[in-house]
Design a protein around this nucleic acid. Structure first.
Length: 346
DNA sequence: AACTCGGGGTG
DNA sequence: CACCCAGAGTT
C-alpha cells in the first residue's frame, strides 16, 4: 500500500469529529482556518462555534463593528487575525458582491490568508489540488522522509512545499490534506509519539534511523524581552474610570486598557508616587492610591514578559471620556486586563 | 532573512 | 523552562 492510501485509511478510522468537517461552506471553512492559525483545535473550537452563531454569513461579519469582532475574538490572541478577517469580509461583500473566492490564487488576495490558508480553503471547500504545509505537515514529512533541512529556512519552506505538492492525492485533495494534518496532530506528535502503533513503522526513515525525536529541525529560538507595566486604574465618585484604545503599533492593537505607564523596573509605591501623571489626565487635585497586587503579575507572550502592577487611584472627578466601571466588560481587552476586571471589586 | 504578533498546553 | 500550535505580515 502506498503512502496516500495508508494515510487516508488511517484518517478514515482515527479522525476527530469537528464542526468544520460537516460543511463545505467556504465562509465557514475560512473562519475555521483563520481561527486555527497557530492555535490548537481544542482552544479554537469554542471560538468557531461563537463566530458561526453570531455571524452566520460573510454579510453579517462585514456589517459588524471591528470592536464587536475583537470582543468575540478576545482571549484567542494574534488579534490581527480578527482585524484582517473583518477587512476581508468587507472586501468580499463590497468588491466581490458577496461571492466567496473559489480558487487558490484569488483566496491568496484576502488579508490574513497566506499560502497555507489559501491551499486549505481551496482544497477543502473547492477540492482544488493545492497542498497544505502547516506545522503538522512539516513534522510528518521531515520524519517520514528523514529530511533535516530546517523547516523555517527559505530553502526548507520551498523544499517541503514542493514535496507536499508532489504527494497530494489528485483524486481527493480535501481528504488528503486533512488526513496528513490530522496524522501529525494525533499520531506523529511533537513529543513522545507512540511509533509502536504507527502505520508507517516499516517505511518511516526517522523510525529506522532513530531520529524521530530529532526531527523536524527548526532554527533559532525566540528571544524574550522583559517590560514593566503600571496600569492606572482611576475611580471617581461616579464609579467611572479611564479606558483607552491601543492605537500604536505593537501588541494588542485596537484593544482597550487602562492608562499605562511603562517603567525600567518594577516600581515601589514611593517610586510610583514620584511619577508625573500628566499623560494620564490626572489633575492637580488631591488623590489617594493603593496597589492592587504587591507582587507583579507576570503575563507571558511569545516575545515579551510583562511584569505588571495595577495601581488603584481614587479621584473626585475624571474627564468626560471616562466610562462607568460596569461597562468595562463591553470592550475588547487583552487577557491581562480582562482578568483584572473580572477579579477586582470596583 | 529576521522579527513581530497571544495565549494555552505539554513534557 | 523550552517548545508547540491547521501562519501571516512587516521590516
Amino acid at each position: 500500500m502506498d503512502f496516500n492510501t495508508k494515510l487516508i485509511n488511517w484518517y478514515s478510522v482515527k479522525k476527530r469529529k469537528l464542526p468544520w468537517r460537516k460543511t463545505r461552506n467556504p465562509y465557514h471553512i475560512w473562519l475555521s482556518e483563520i481561527i486555527l492559525q497557530q492555535t490548537q483545535v481544542k482552544q479554537g473550537l469554542p471560538y468557531y462555534d461563537a463566530f458561526v452563531a453570531n455571524y452566520p454569513t460573510v454579510f453579517d461579519l462585514a456589517e459588524a463593528s471591528e470592536s464587536d469582532i475583537l470582543k468575540l475574538w478576545q482571549g484567542l490572541g494574534y488579534y490581527s487575525r480578527a482585524r484582517n478577517l473583518h477587512a476581508s469580509a468587507k472586501y468580499i461583500v463590497n468588491e466581490l458582491k458577496g461571492e466567496f473566492p473559489d480558487n487558490y490564487k484569488d483566496l491568496l488576495k484576502l488579508k490574513g490568508v497566506g499560502d497555507y490558508t489559501a491551499s486549505a480553503i481551496a482544497s477543502i471547500a473547492f477540492n482544488e489540488v493545492a497542498a497544505v504545509v502547516d506545522g503538522n505537515v512539516y513534522r510528518v514529512l521531515s520524519r517520514y522522509f528523514g529530511i533535516d533541512t530546517p523547516i523555517n529556512s527559505t530553502e526548507g519552506i520551498k523544499e517541503f512545499k514542493a514535496l507536499a505538492s508532489s504527494l497530494i492525492d489528485h483524486n481527493q485533495p480535501a481528504t488528503y490534506n486533512q488526513a496528513i494534518m490530522e496524522f501529525g496532530a494525533l499520531q506523529c506528535k511533537p513529543k513522545n509519539p507512540d511509533c509502536s502503533i504507527c502505520p508507517f513503522q516499516d517505511s518511516c526513515v526517522a523510525i529506522q534511523k532513530q531520529k524521530v525525536d530529532l526531527l523536524p529541525i527548526k532554527l533559532k529560538k525566540t528571544k524574550v524581552t522583559v517590560k514593566y507595566f503600571n496600569y492606572l486604574v482611576f475611580i471617581d465618585q461616579h464609579k467611572k474610570t479611564l479606558f483607552e484604545k491601543r492605537t500604536k503599533k505593537g501588541i494588542w492593537q485596537q484593544l482597550y486598557q487602562f492608562p499605562l505607564i511603562e517603567s525600567e523596573k518594577s516600581l515601589t509605591a514611593n517610586e510610583f508616587h514620584l511619577l508625573n501623571f500628566d499623560a494620564a489626565a490626572l489633575t492637580t487635585e488631591s488623590f489617594d492610591y493603593s496597589l492592587y497586587n504587591e507582587t507583579d503579575i507576570v503575563h507571558k507572550l511569545s516575545h515579551q514578559h510583562l511584569y505588571t502592577k495595577f495601581w488603584i487611584i481614587e479621584v473626585k472627578s475624571l474627564p468626560k471620556e471616562a466610562i462607568l466601571v460596569n461597562s468595562l466588560s463591553k470592550y475588547p481587552a487583552p487577557v491581562l486586563i480582562s482578568d483584572f476586571i473580572d477579579n477586582f471589586s470596583f
